[in-house]
Design a protein around this nucleic acid. Structure first.
Lengths: 201, 201
DNA sequence: CATGACTTATGACACCTGTCATATTTTTTT
DNA sequence: AAAAAAATATGACAGGTGTCATAAGTCATG
């Protein structure tokens, strides 16, 4: 009997997963939660065999959660279930050594099968993603550059960013300039767009 | 017996809906599709009592689909089921006279109940959204302004937009300037951000 | 048919942005 | 310890952006 924790913030989907998984005789839901921090607590409390986690959740993202579990050497197997095929997400997931990475675009049976395969020690990823695995494009951005792009994404101007971070305007422009060049963009907006698409910010 | 068409692009969720709805004796799924155009065809073919549609789908969005059905006077009741609480979406939905507007954040039972209530002629919207209904903020953007913001969102520069639309740079800047003022933003990026959040682009 | 909203355009001004050269300090890697 | 990468800063230049005044044409509304 595989003991499972589900972390997914959309209640409709979470409820559906729970109901459908409960119908399988060899699978058991021990907890279902709506955000990353709750998930961490639930996993520490229940010690499940496996957890299904969404990436975009409030608090802690699924990827951060995975990294944390691996850093603390928790033996729980991890399956990421997400809408997004952003290359950066998949790479982060690989780095965190998750056991599965499925798109919500798959049929639900695929999820059930994936759980069983992961329980046997296999790794499972959605078919559409295998090609992305080989691209293996590295995120070239430094921490500061990422920070600038994130603020630029919110629509902040150079001036506002400089006040927020207590840096000079020139420095902000330098970071953004370097990010723009690394991403082969032509403006900060384009850079934001590209970085979002790759899952780097 | 209520005959239902489901239009939802995430297969996992669509499959889950179908499975769970089929368990109800008074509800029947006559078709399930993954995009707006297919949905339109399915509705014309099967003449369901009710359709559940997602907003963000390839091809035709759920809101466009709703508007089309109402314009052609199709009697099928419409329930929008979406992740997004952007005010603009809700307003468009109201304009299209949909019968329900639910967030995917609701429990699945709420969906089932909503279907039954809509069948009886009631209107149903998620509780979290009632307050937004009263805000009733009108989209102040003209068609052209919206177009500019959409292109700016993709990261295009003034120059690129002007070439794409065969307009002078000055004109582009005027439109963007006027959009920026209407949205009380301070830059095109901020304007894009605000307009996206309100569901206006 | 007059009013008003929308589209399109131009020129000018101030300010913002992206780039580059250059430099210092700190941190990381080898 | 030396080398490389990152964080931070400055000044200057070219070009992009936002604003404003102004104007002319189109189209719908009353």
């Amino acid at each position: 009997m595989a003991r499972i924790v589900i972390a997914e913030d959309q209640q409709m989907l979470r409820g559906a997963f729970t109901t459908l998984i409960k119908m399988e005789d060899d699978l058991e839901i021990v907890a279902e939660v709506a955000d990353g921090e709750e998930a961490l607590r639930a996993i520490q409390k229940h010690n499940p065999d496996i957890c299904l986690v969404d990436i975009e959740m409030p608090g802690l993202t699924g990827l951060e959660l995975a990294l944390k579990l691996r850093t603390m050497n928790h033996p729980c197997k991890i399956i990421i279930v997400t809408t997004f095929s952003r290359p950066g997400y998949l790479q982060q997931a690989m780095k965190a050594k998750v056991d599965g990475y499925l798109l919500k675009d798959e049929p639900i049976d695929f999820l059930i099968q994936a759980i069983r395969r992961v329980m046997k020690g296999e790794k499972v990823i959605s078919n559409d993603l295998t090609s992305i695995l080989f691209q293996n494009e590295e995120n070239p951005l430094t921490e500061r550059e990422t920070e600038m792009l994130l603020l630029a994404k919110e629509g902040l101007t150079t001036d506002e960013i400089s006040k927020k971070l207590y840096l000079t305007k020139g420095t902000i422009r330098n970071y953004l300039s370097s990010a723009i060049q690394k991403l082969e963009a032509e403006s900060r907006q384009q850079a934001v767009h590209i970085a979002s698409n790759k899952g780097w910010i």
